[in-house]
Simulated scan of single mutants.
Amino acid sequence: MIEIKNLSLTLREPILQNANFVFQDGQIYLLQALNGTGKTSVLRTMVSLLAPDAGHVSFDGHEFTEVKQQVFYLETADWFDKNLSGLDYMQFVKQEWQSDQKIETEINRWQMGDYVKMPIRKYSLGMKQKLLVSLYSLSGAKYLLMDEINNGLDEDSRQVLYQQLVALKKHGKLIIMASHYQDEVASIVDQTLTLKKQRLVQE
């Protein structure tokens, strides 16, 4: 469970004002809003990359710093060091998150065998996005926060992603995803939240 309690956040302008919501385990939540109105900032605040004006976020009653290994958030493939390989990142995530997930399973799922040992600077957008997606499963984390996770994926790869998200949900994962593919993900989403007038509104 992730609880947002009395959360207020202001950057250039107010994004959240006294927002409250409880995200339940084993659910997929879609977070939607107009571009530039704060979806990414909300996710960043949840993982302590941004400090709120007031209020707090808790994970099963704990602060983020106490449960970091149970949370996975990789905002964008632009965060990758282009001189490292996909395999470098997979090995790092498996070690740091103390995961028992198998690297080979993700390589095969996303058909990365031909390039996973190459430097990321040689990857296409789709290749980088497949790597990013694979790290979520590989982490074994309970809480998965995803920002436009399906960007850069072709239709077939997006379907693989959605099947994997449903499988993760069935294993009790709590998934929050911001996505422009609202119609496409509607069939796998349990609840939709809209960032509207500095509130999280349940649709």
Rank of each mutant, 00 (worst) to 15 (best):
L193S: 06
Y89K: 08
I2W: 04
K128Y: 09
T105S: 06
E63V: 05
S85N: 07
L132Q: 11
Q27T: 07
K94C: 06
R121G: 01
A51M: 11
L153I: 08
N108V: 02
Q24I: 04
V201G: 10
Q17M: 11
K142G: 08
L161N: 00
V160T: 14
L34R: 10
S187C: 07
N108G: 03
P119W: 01
F23S: 03
M112Y: 03
K94M: 05
F72S: 06
T194N: 10
F23I: 03
M177Y: 00
T37K: 07
M146S: 04
L125Q: 12
K173P: 01
I2D: 00
V57D: 04
L30A: 12
Y73S: 11
V57W: 11
R12P: 00
D78W: 07
D60Y: 15
L49R: 04
S8T: 11
F92P: 04
K102M: 11
E3V: 11
Q27A: 04
I2R: 00
R199Y: 10
Q159Y: 12
D114E: 09
M118I: 06
K130R: 15
R109Y: 10
T37F: 03
E96Q: 14
L161E: 01
Y136E: 00
L30P: 00
L168E: 10
K173H: 13
Q91D: 09
G61I: 07
V185L: 15
P14A: 12
Q70D: 14
T105K: 12
K130S: 08
N83Y: 12
Q91I: 12
T10V: 13
K68P: 08
Q129R: 15
V189Q: 00
W79M: 15
I15W: 00
K5Q: 12
K142P: 11
Q111W: 02
E63Y: 14
I107V: 15
Q111A: 13
R12D: 15
V201C: 13
G140T: 08
E13A: 15
Q69K: 15
G172H: 02
T40G: 06
K94L: 05
G152Y: 05
K5W: 00
S137E: 12
V71E: 04
Q129F: 09
A77I: 14
D25M: 03
L31A: 04
E96T: 10
G36K: 02
D114I: 03
H180E: 02
N35V: 05
R121Q: 10
E184M: 05
G140W: 08
F92S: 10
K102L: 12
I103R: 03
Y136W: 10
Q198G: 09
F23L: 11
F72M: 14
A141S: 14
L138K: 07
G152I: 11
H56R: 06
K102T: 05
Q91P: 04
L161D: 03
V201K: 12
I120P: 09
V57P: 04
V166C: 01
V160G: 00
L125F: 10
H62D: 09
M118Q: 15
V116T: 01
H56M: 07
Q98E: 13
M90S: 03
D60W: 14
M46V: 04
E148D: 13
I15H: 02
G152H: 07
A77W: 13
T105V: 11
N151F: 03
S157V: 08
I149F: 09
I4K: 01
F92A: 13
A19R: 02
K39T: 05
